[in-house]
Design a binder for these strands. Structure first.
Length: 971
RNA sequence: GCCCUUGUGGCGGAACGGCAGACGCUUCGGACUUAAAAUCCGAUGACCGAAAGGUCGUGCGGGUUCGAUUCCCGCCAAGGGCACCA
């Protein structure tokens, strides 16, 4: 019987599970072995089942894990389920089943699919984010966030108790703007300036104020802010979940509306999240995406007085802008506020009130998306108010315009029309003054029809004239700071993380709310707070979350006071923010993770997953990790030392024929230029139009192509043909989704694994091509034949997984030929190095070459067969285990020793030296590897072929690159 | 508009200063077979040539170098990210 992959794969999958073959060792068991934590991004178990993209990353980490185990490393390689989330809940609503049920069914299906791929996970450590024993600790981390604040002096999170203590001790005081500062009297400064009280002490606050003050410092806090409300999903979404004004999930419209929501103070960590990227071995492009998302801008806040306006207490009003170009302050010819800016109502003049209101109403009625769509045409309205430029007391008009966003900076800008393109367009539109205050450093004039936005030399700016922009900015900031009309600051685009959702299927907050809506945390001992069983978990159609219908569950009386539970739930990201920690100690009932285990295993040595999490999961997880680090719960500042993004697997190539613009002849197959070029020469376009999957549509392709003998096609000489061959993302609607179940059924898991790894570099985006799978299938069958001698179904031998393994008649104890031995040792080196560099495609190519050698052999020496099976084991583990057993081993090879190569055998005794003349290859010499340079050059010039190219010319230079080539330069 | 990534045979890709196209697919030819499948052997970048051999060739245009797919400068195209971010 021939190679029966189904039986073999079942047999070994059973064996691995029964024997817990991939159990990670405890630090004690491991002794002085090295450790490696190899992690996959755990999947969201959707109803659709595994996608071919999942096995790509999972196979990659599996190969690395299996390889490292064979190298004697203690490997932790776990898997789990990120099972809270919107799709499960939406599906549950649609089918009227409880999300618990669908989630369990989906997890079972995912587990089956993952196990059928032969992935070497330590199943003892499986986690499920929806398990109360898991989300108990998600809630626990939330409590840590709630009970902590960010100490800007130490630049880290600390217990809120510490803050209260410092306030009680009067080391800290409360500034009028609500900020907490060092007590100036501690530095010998006065806390009282004139008759006006500047700062207040803790004991001078009443109980409500104290509570407010503390609540405003927490890392998890409630705030009434404009949030992204998605009507269709019935929930709010984080900035990261909104793309182009639509929900990332489902693409539903999202509106801004003010709601009281839980926020996490990720902005406090902006600088550390930015700085620590430098320490990570991550793809540069992904780091760049995080940098852009954090969006650091260095600049200044500048205060403009509004001389004609007083607040209700009779204090003069002021207006603060943020700018990255303080050096252009003299060029500010007007100010612009966001239409939603709270100051607008206070300063608008009687005459302008009507038009300002109308404009603001119009803007409010439009989504962010619409606002961006017609950003080409600037709109805005004058408020009737004027402000004073602090640098020169110039009186400038204040406008409102929707190109200024309330959500960035202070929601107000100083407009410098000469040096900002948007301001320039606005000024042109409304005929506002444009004043040049920077000239190009290299001389030459700036373009007249647009803003000069680069740095240069300040001009028309009395105190900074002649200074380069950077110095000019510094001087302006110094001046403003001296006069208390501004200060240098760094602004981040990153916003605090909106952390609550109006959903049922998420972690409940361990929070009680009193009648005023103040939050009180549950005690750690009260966790987990489990989701109430509800038959009606549908959205309410209002911002009221489904849990508001939970009846008794909601009511809590404590110390004689009535509370109601928080009815929002946490977003899907909560569970995935820390799952990598739980794998280390998944059954611990006392702690999140045992500190010794945490220190042993962290950080994650290799993390593989899709790039779609660049600014969501990967930013959130880093943030939580840093908080846990500050609070002493984890030992490393970063969770994922090395990260690799697997490239997207696109759908199968699609070929399209279409009319060209002239409505003329048909367009046909292959990418534009190639086809066009081909059409001009009339030569063979592609030999295999049929076999590539191109569909012959009607007669048209036949009109353009003539069939050659043997099934190839040729372009008719004068046709103009364009071929559109492209592949698209796999999607249900396109009908190009490949189902892993079918591939494994038809070809086996080993072949499937090989195929995905052989498609190309792990990081590259590449199209699926079912046609190519057969290559890997042939390889597996060929290895089987080469090592078992079982040729085809007719030779009468029983085999397959359930049968007792029979010894092979192809294996011999004869010594291996010298040349083959050298090839083997080169392969051992290459395969090991390629795995370490995640270059699986070239490693597989090496295995194929080695197997091709065996195909040509009469019988295969054990000296070659055994190392070959070990080298193949990480890639085709089932096949390798079966062959290993048939080679007479009674132990699984999962912990067998990886072969070692002998460096002596890497060098060939003879070498082939190409000889170039003027950089062109003219001959090749086969020489003893010991030949000296002088002899090689003599031999090279002695070559007849070389001589014909050198004759009659002067040799200018003779070059020898040791072991590589000779180049003779002649003139 | 800005940032990042990628452009190599009929296809996926390899080489990443030193023999361009490893390896797989496809196609063609041969062996085996009553036949087919499977398997095995050989060929497969283009052009010229009967052959030996030669010329061209890694998106395009320059540059550095004895030598460039590889490094530098300038374009073009595709994919991804950000986007009125002050």
């Amino acid at each position: 019987m021939s190679y029966n992959f189904t039986a073999i794969e079942k047999k070994w999958q059973r064996y691995w599970l029964d024997n817990r073959s991939f159990r990670a060792l405890s630090p004690t068991e491991a002794g002085d072995r090295a450790k490696a934590y190899i992690l996959d991004m755990f999947p969201y178990p959707s109803g659709a089942g595994l996608h071919v993209g999942h096995p790509e990353g999972y196979t990659a980490t599996d190969i690395v894990s299996r390889y490292l185990r064979m190298k004697g490393v203690n490997v932790l390689h776990p898997m789990g389920w990120d099972a809270f989330g919107l799709p499960a809940e939406q599906y549950a609503i649609k089918t009227n089943t409880h999300p618990r049920q669908t989630t369990e069914a989906n997890i079972a299906n995912f587990r089956r699919q993952i196990q059928m791929l032969g992935l070497s996970y330590d199943w003892d450590r499986e986690v499920d984010t929806t398990d109360p024993n898991y989300y108990r600790w998600t809630q626990w981390i939330f409590l840590q966030l709630f009970n902590s604040y960010f100490d800007p002096i130490e630049n880290r999170a600390r217990s809120i108790k510490h803050l209260v203590q410092e306030l009680l001790n009067e080391n800290l005081v409360v500034a009028p703007d609500g900020e907490i500062r060092l007590n100036p009297t501690q530095e010998g400064l006065e806390r009282i300036a004139g008759e006006m009280r500047i700062e207040r002490l803790w004991r001078e606050l009443d109980a409500d104020e104290q509570r407010q003050l503390i609540d405003n410092q927490r890392l998890a806090y409630m705030d009434e802010i404009a949030v992204n409300w998605c009507e269709a999903l019935g929930t709010v979404l984080s900035n990261e979940e909104v793309i182009d004004g639509k929900s990332e999930v489902g693409g539903y419209p999202v509106q801004r509306r003010p709601m009281r929501q839980w926020m996490l103070r990720i902005t406090a960590y902006a600088q550390r999240l930015l700085d620590d990227l430098e320490t990570l071995q991550w793809p540069e492009s992904l780091k760049e995406m995080q940098r852009n998302w954090i969006g650091r801008s260095q600049g200044a806040r500048i205060d403009f007085d509004l001389p004609d306006h007083m607040d209700s207490d009779g204090e003069p009003l002021g207006l603060t802008v943020f700018t990255t170009r303080p050096d252009t302050l003299y060029g500010a010819t007007y100010l612009v506020l966001a239409p939603e800016h709270p100051l607008v109502d206070l300063i608008v003049s009687q005459e302008q009130r009507q038009s300002v209101r109308e404009y603001a109403a119009k803007v409010a009625g439009r989504s962010e998306r619409d606002r961006q769509a017609d950003s080409k045409e600037k709109t805005g309205v004058f408020t009737g108010a004027y402000a004073l430029n602090p640098i020169n007391e110039e009186k400038i008009p204040v406008w409102i315009a929707d190109y200024v966003l309330m959500g960035y900076g202070t929601g107000a800008i100083m407009a410098v029309a000469a040096h900002d393109q948007r301001d320039y367009e606005f000024a042109k539109r409304f005929d506002l003054p444009i004043r040049t205050v920077v000239r190009p450093a290299q001389g030459g004039a700036a373009a007249a029809d647009k803003a000069f936005v680069e740095e240069g030399i300040a001009c028309n700016s009395p105190i900074i004239d002649g200074l380069p922009s950077a110095e000019a900015s510094a001087k302006i900031i110094a001046t403003l700071e001296r006069e208390s009309t501004g200060r240098g600051m760094i602004h981040y685009k990153l916003r605090d993380w909106l952390f609550s959702r109006q959903r049922y299927w998420g972690e409940p907050f361990p929070i009680l709310l009193d009648e005023e809506g103040n939050a009180t945390a549950l005690d750690e001992s009260e966790l987990p707070l489990t989701l109430p069983q509800m038959s009606d978990f549908k959205p309410t159609g209002t911002p009221q979350p489904p849990l508001s219908k939970a009846g008794e569950w909601l009511q809590v009386t404590r110390d004689g006071k009535n509370y109601i539970r928080e009815t929002n739930t946490m977003p899907q990201w909560a569970g995935s923010c820390w799952y990598y920690l739980r794998y280390l100690d998944p059954k611990n009932t006392e702690r999140l993770v045992d500190p010794d285990l945490e220190r042993y295993w962290m950080p994650v040595d290799l993390y593989v997953g899709g790039v779609e999490h660049a600014v969501l999961h990967l930013l959130y997880a880093r943030f939580w990790h840093k908080v846990l680090f500050d609070l002493g719960q984890v030992s490393t500042p970063e969770p994922f030392a090395r990260l690799v993004n697997q490239g997207l697997i696109l759908g199968e190539m699609e070929y399209h024929l279409f009319e060209d613009e002239a409505g003329g002849p048909v367009s046909a197959a292959l990418v534009g230029d190639v086809a066009e070029e081909a059409s001009q020469s009339g030569r063979r376009l592609m030999g295999t139009l049929k076999s590539t999957g191109a569909k012959v549509i009607g007669k048209r392709i036949d009109e353009a192509l003539t069939q050659r003998g043997g099934g190839g096609f040729c372009l008719k000489s004068d046709e103009r043909i364009m071929l559109d061959a492209r592949s698209f993302k796999m999607s249900k609607s396109r009908g190009n989704v490949v189902n892993p179940d079918e591939i494994v059924r038809d070809y086996g898991a080993d072949t499937f694994r090989l195929y995905e790894m052989y498609m190309g570099p792990l990081e590259a985006q590449k199209p699926w091509n079912t046609r190519d799978i057969v290559g890997m299938s042939r390889f597996c069958a060929s290895v089987w034949r080469n090592l078992t001698g079982e040729r085809d179904p007719d030779d009468g031998q029983a085999s397959g997984g359930d049968q007792p393994a029979t010894a092979s008649n192809r294996i011999t104890d004869e010594p291996l030929a010298e040349a083959s031995r050298r090839q083997l040792h080169r392969a051992i080196k290459k395969v090991g190095e390629d795995i370490e560099n995640l270059r699986f495609n070239t490693a597989i190519a090496e295995l194929i070459k080695l197997n091709n050698q065996m195909t040509g052999m009469e019988s295969v020496p054990r000296e070659l067969a055994e190392p070959f099976v070990l080298l193949a084991a990480p890639f085709t583990p089932h096949l390798a285990e079966e062959l290993w057993q048939r080679l007479g081993h009674d132990q699984s090879l999962s912990r067998a020793t990886w072969p070692q190569y002998d460096s002596e055998l890497l060098a060939e005794p003879m070498m082939e030296i190409p000889v170039q003349v003027n950089g062109k290859l003219r001959d090749k010499l086969t020489l003893d590897a010991q030949t000296t340079e002088a002899d090689i050059l003599v031999a090279a010039l002695d070559s007849a072929k070389v001589r014909t190219w050198v004759e009659g010319k002067t040799i200018v230079k003779k070059l020898y690159v040791p072991g590589k080539l000779v180049n003779v330069v002649v003139r």
